[in-house]
Write a protein that binds this DNA or RNA. Structure first.
Lengths: 343, 343
DNA sequence: GTGAAAGCGCTAACAA
DNA sequence: TTGTTAGCGCTTTCAC
């Protein structure tokens, strides 16, 4: 059932039917009703391609994941974010086009997406401090929004980010309040924007209390489980090992738990661990692992919001870019580890 | 730069240019060269929507993930599969459209995708034994391929599956060879096809050796970490607890490791654990965790193959459905657990 | 308030 | 071997 058929059935022109369906004011109420009823009855759905051709819109948003950041997909947070964005897209009539792309091909892919008119906009994932994708997209003239930020990029653009600095500042403060003085930081690669900001928060919290920053307690690598395991084992060998750890993702946190167990210690009793991008409701039972994170629902919400920002930009290209900073929730499980206050 | 412009620049008709670009035989070699050069020079990319409208194809494949199976996305296997499929799509000029959909909305979404002409085909994920989506898609007439199988569905359809039964049969055999007689099975929900097949393999291996199947050692739930933790703790309370476990996913395996540690035991020394859908190369360091799985690259390959099957079906709708059964690789780490043979 | 007709960018008969 | 022409299904001027 296409517009032509529907119009014929109604004894109206395509024009009128189109107008009625798309809420143009010049259609009489009676006609509109009639058209709506018929459309419903025959469950008419306008053909996306034809509509797109006529309007110059594709009604699709591209999510481009560099293959190097593909392990992002293992992160529960990624799924929730995508799910949130997907909801907003669906409600606004957009499709989500997912492209996993070799890093070297990224520029080509963006240019082609634009040239082929496949998408009306792009969501940029896993931004680096000085991410070249941003000026590229700006040059191409393809609307986009960044999940995260690229601190070293000066031009204005749409982004939505967790307040990573504040999150780690607060988490560090929290541990300091418990009396911890040696806190290990297991961070992501420093070129990643989030990692840089998180370290800044950690360092600032320490300096605020006049505590020296020990480079031996700060690691920055790709967030694999083995990284967590090895880093903690090594830090444990130090003359004055950490009593607490701050981790940037649940993946290395798994390795941390293993290292702690292997050392004959108990996580939550002997050693505190606070994990970002983790969520008890997702994987854990909530009883023994401390949690510091955006909750699943708030990540989902973030996805929705970024999608909304992008859609608005698409419908209104000349408006100024929008930005949004979300505060992560600090939720701490029962046994968050040793309170060293009294010792 | 569109076809019209390009044709004008070349002093040719759109038709000829189109034919030259699409490899039609009637174009002279000289013309083809000239056209190709110009297309390259102006980096001409045909507009997808226009092409789609003209050909009746959308050049996009839909992946519909029921929100209830959304935790699938946490599974590394999912990312690899999607990445593999994405490669094939890209090579064949297809886009991948991802829809996360409420279970109750699934039928509507399929129908709309078809009516709106958004996609040329669908990949069905996480099939249940008696999955209604299959006959639905067949009714609608939308080409599709299933990642997995639906054993209770009789009509022929395209699918690609791991040989789940054989995998668990071999894994169980492997443990039996080591002398284990009490083997816990932590499986997914029995309505899921893969879970049913895996249990069948496990049971068959036991019966082959005349070992009674103990229902207390068989669990079937949604694969969360907490499930793994609780199930193992409970089985450990049994008068004759398991000496080995077989797990359907890496997520509960994390909980299992925790339960084993909590019990003061060492995984790989005191207790064997074999995990499906896991991959040392991805998360672990490979030294202490036995592995039973399709490797990352083979899962990726599976994604490619299923995509190829679907694309072929789309280009050739009247041909008979294709199926493919892949054998999982059995790879076991160094310390796979106690060899009870000598005791 | 409604309709006729042009056009979005491409492909595919049909002609030449 | 190349070109002319008519669509694909929709939106959008411009007339009525």
């Amino acid at each position: 059932m296409n517009l032509k058929d529907l119009a014929a059935r109604l004894g109206l022109s395509q024009t009128t039917v189109s107008r009625a369906l798309n809420g143009y004011p010049e259609v009489s109420e009676a006609t509109r009703q009639r058209v709506a009823a018929a459309a419903e009855k025959y469950s008419y759905r306008p053909n996306t391609r034809a509509k797109g051709l006529a309007t110059g819109r594709s009604m699709a948003i591209g999510h481009v994941i560099p293959i190097s950041a593909q392990h992002e997909m293992v992160n529960p947070v990624f799924g929730d974010f995508i799910a949130g964005a997907g909801e907003t897209y669906a409600a606004a009539g957009y499709d989500m086009v997912l492209s996993l792309v070799q890093d070297s091909q990224e520029e080509r892919v963006y240019r082609e997406m634009f040239a082929k008119g496949n998408v009306d906009g792009i969501v940029v994932h896993a931004p680096e401090m000085q991410d070249p994708r941003i000026s590229l997209l700006q040059d191409i003239g393809l609307p986009f929004a960044v999940h995260g930020r690229a601190s070293d990029v000066q031009i204005p653009y749409n982004w939505l980010d967790m307040n990573n600095k504040n999150a780690f500042l607060r988490a560090t403060d929290f541990l300091l309040d418990l009396g911890h003085r040696r806190i290990g930081l297991l961070n992501g690669l420093e070129k990643m924007d989030f990692a840089h900001r998180r370290r800044t928060g950690y360092v600032e919290a320490l300096l605020n209390r006049g505590i020296a920053v020990d480079p031996q307690l700060m690691r920055s690598e790709e967030m694999t489980e083995n990284y967590g395991y090895q880093a903690v084992r090594q830090m444990m060998e130090l003359p004055d090992p950490p009593t607490a750890y701050l981790v940037s993702s649940m993946i290395p946190a798994i390795g941390i738990r293993r290292a702690i167990h292997d050392a004959g210690l108990v996580m939550g009793r002997d050693i505190s661990v606070i994990t970002h991008d983790d969520d008890l409701s997702y994987l854990r039972n909530g009883d023994d692992v401390p949690l510091f994170t955006a909750t699943r629902s708030s990540v989902r919400e973030a996805g929705q919001q970024l999608a909304r920002i992008l859609i608005e930009q698409i419908s209104n290209p000349q408006q100024a870019p929008k930005t949004k900073l979300l505060e992560a929730e600090l939720t701490v499980g029962r046994s968050t580890g040793p309170n060293l206050e009294g010792r």
